[in-house]
């Protein structure tokens, strides 16, 4: 594949990796390979990242030009009867429809957050499998609640 060079680890990170072992590295500087006539330019990591960044920025500008952000209802307008939380807190809003506030707004999100913070430690040794399943369960629950939030408006 273009861009592959076998080099000794020169990035100063080898203290923790495997010292002296040969690795396939992408260089920081692009270079030409092959004899003249069949020359290929190997993109450096910096160039690849810049290309990815340009694609992202172009998409972002397009979306921003096409889809304006809402401004909401002004304070002077007639009072709203129903207000939805910003979508990122939609899952909590849906939870609050079914469980008491302390449970929906503190207990469940709190347990989830503490679980996430401790995840690397919980998933050591024999805990690895249950911790992973919990992660999938929680992530799935967030997605289901988000879908319900969109569905209920």
């Amino acid at each position: 594949m273009a861009g592959i060079r076998t080099l000794r680890d020169e990035d100063g990170c080898s203290k923790i990796g495997v010292p002296g072992r040969k690795k396939v590295l992408v260089r920081g500087v692009s270079m030409k390979t092959g004899s003249s006539g069949s020359e290929r330019i190997n993109l450096s990591w910096a160039e690849r990242e810049m290309l990815a960044g340009l694609v992202f920025l172009t998409a972002l500008v397009l979306v921003s030009a096409l889809f304006p952000a809402a401004v909401g209802t002004g304070p002077q307008a007639p009072l709203l009867r129903h207000a939805a939380a910003p979508w990122i807190f939609g899952p909590i809003q849906v939870l609050l429809l079914y469980v008491p506030p302390l449970v929906g707004a503190w207990l469940i999100p709190g347990v989830f957050l503490i679980f996430l913070f401790l995840f690397p430690w919980l998933s050591r040794g024999r805990g690895a499998r249950p911790a992973f399943y919990f992660f999938v369960f929680f992530a799935g629950a967030v997605l289901v609640l988000l879908a319900m939030y969109v569905w209920l408006g």
Binding site: R5, C13, L25, V29
Partner: peptide, 22 residues
């Protein structure tokens, strides 16, 4: 440009593993 100097190479490694770039 020297491969070891330059701002970009200063804040990032000279080589990055192919796997990490994939």
């Amino acid at each position: 440009m020297s491969q070891k100097r330059g701002f970009l190479n200063h804040i990032r490694p000279h080589g990055v593993s192919e796997k990490a770039m994939s």
